[in-house]
Amino acid sequence: MKEQLAGALAAEEAAIWAYGLIGVHLREGSEQNQARAAEDEHRVRRDDLVDRLARLQASTAPTPAGYELPFPVEDRASALKLAVQIEDGVGQAWRVVLPVTENADRTEALSALTDAAVRATKWRKLAKITPLTLIFPGRPTA
């Protein structure tokens, strides 16, 4: 379980980092607010994971000094595309937590997967990417 939780932590860290970059390219107002709210939710999950892993006395990899973007992010369209990709990735990281957890821990992991899928759909709407949903959120596509 530690390994899967560490994976979720890495995904949440990456999401927090990415939203810092995404927000500046979005329209002021509701779009930027949506990015800020998403970043806040990822921070809450990140903090929770740090606590849980500390309780499990698991060592976690340090946050990498830098991330590599999958593509240049320099306008609204690429920022929205990155937001979708980030949320899909967070969903994948949480889905693998489901089989290794039970009860409240599994419920928490399912909330994280579900929230990521819903946020990805919100970003797809703004980006006009169709279909708006994945058939199996969190399932690796490759």
Binding site: G91, R95, L98, A109, L110, L113, T114, A116, A117, V118, A120, T121, L132, T133, L134, I135, F136, P137, G138, R139
Partner: peptide, 9 residues
């Protein structure tokens, strides 16, 4: 879990 998340989305 994926099905639950899909339905939410």
């Amino acid at each position: 879990g994926s099905i639950a998340a899909a339905r939410a989305s």
